[in-house]
Design a protein around this nucleic acid. Structure first.
Lengths: 208, 208
DNA sequence: CGGCCAATCACCCTATTGGGGGGATTTTGA
DNA sequence: TCAAAATCCCCCCAATAGGGTGATTGGCCG
């Protein structure tokens, strides 16, 4: 048989924390080695717990879950961090993932799914609630109703890559003046008058 | 009772195509209204099928799945597209999602999970196989072993936003010459000598 | 304690760039 | 056939970018 998966829970609500601990601990192959009510309390001894997977809440007293992620990563570089929270704000999700979380579950997730997700994350998967996944997928997609033409979008992309007009002209095999003309039209349509503002407008409206 | 979910399958392998059709059609609430062996054949009549969800393979004769997505989106703006493929290359995944796919499953997915995913995507979820989700999550994360200091990373981000030195100086409340100095160090460390090359190096190595 | 690196600021130089005007022509798609 | 898209052309000039060669102040680490 394989080794037990060592789990630490960091969750401020006592009921939920103990609920998780009992629930997961009952499952064959899973051991909850410790449970804390805050990152600040966990920081002192979590290294000795040597967890494989950390279940982490976002809303915590003191250091919040988002800030805790990089610090946990430094303390336990090989541990996987699984966010388990009621929060579904885009900002939280993307910050948590960017900070090094390996999965993101909302608290309405059924117990069996949580247990599965712990296994999945250990096996190199990236468990997410479907509503979270929807937001993540949406972040890859562009605005369909872009005011820009294909060519203009293409040139705006190159501007966002930091290229100069002449570089863009060379890369697209068109004249420098044509690039200029396109950029003027882009500025007109986006109502801006600089590269930086155009890039900002484009990112805000998912045009690139 | 709720309406039946109308499904179209586009898959070139006959065995798999018919397997899906039978399997999904058996499930209460799901109707496979049509199945095609290529997008090019589907294009002619898929509008009359009026599907809610399209199961789409990537590897198809003629127009491939990736290219088919935006065209399907134009023909059926309200249909959800669920990619169902053996391919797990990062390029395929990100292109498919960027083109408008709402989910991405690999073909080893159990039948029950496929049926669930159809329901999920209709309900506004974003079903993904866990291995796909892992790659998507990884795409949010930065390289930990960046050669750049915090300040340098911060300034490189602003450069990627298209800001000029003087804008950066104003935004960070530091002198123009300090910004210059940081940029010189960034160029040294990344072994480049222009904004465009620095941005490219940074994106390639996930420094920003 | 000495050395390293990050972060800050300084002044030299010049070619390139960017943005604001004013146009025109051809190609393409609905 | 008619509008939008894509192409190219000229004027102007301030701002910018990048190269060189420095200095100074901290903090951190062995």
């Amino acid at each position: 048989m394989g080794k037990e998966i060592r789990i630490v829970v960091i969750e401020d609500d006592q009921i939920i924390r103990e609920g998780y601990s009992i629930l997961i601990g009952q499952t064959e192959g899973y051991t909850v080695v410790n449970a804390y009510d805050s990152f600040d309390n966990a920081a002192k001894s979590i290294c000795e717990d040597n967890p494989d997977v950390i279940l982490l809440d976002i809303e915590l007293p003191g250091t919040n879950g988002i800030e805790a992620i990089p610090r946990l990563k430094r303390m336990l570089p090989h541990a996987y961090i699984l966010i388990l929270t009621v929060y579904e704000s885009e900002k939280n999700i993307f910050e948590a993932l960017a900070n090094g979380a390996s999965g993101y579950l909302t608290k309405n997730t059924p117990a069996a799914r949580i247990v599965d997700s712990i296994r999945e994350v250990k096996d190199g998967g990236g468990p997410m609630s479907v509503n979270i996944a929807r937001m993540v997928i949406k972040s890859f997609q562009r605005n369909q109703e872009s005011p820009l033409s294909k060519r203009e979008t293409q040139i705006l992309e190159q501007i966002a890559d930091g290229k100069s007009r002449s570089q863009i002209a060379r890369d697209l095999f068109i004249d420098l003046e044509t690039v200029r003309s396109h950029i003027k039209n882009i500025y007109l349509k986006l109502d801006v008058n600089s590269r930086a503002d155009a890039i900002k407008a484009a990112k805000d409206n998912r045009l690139i």
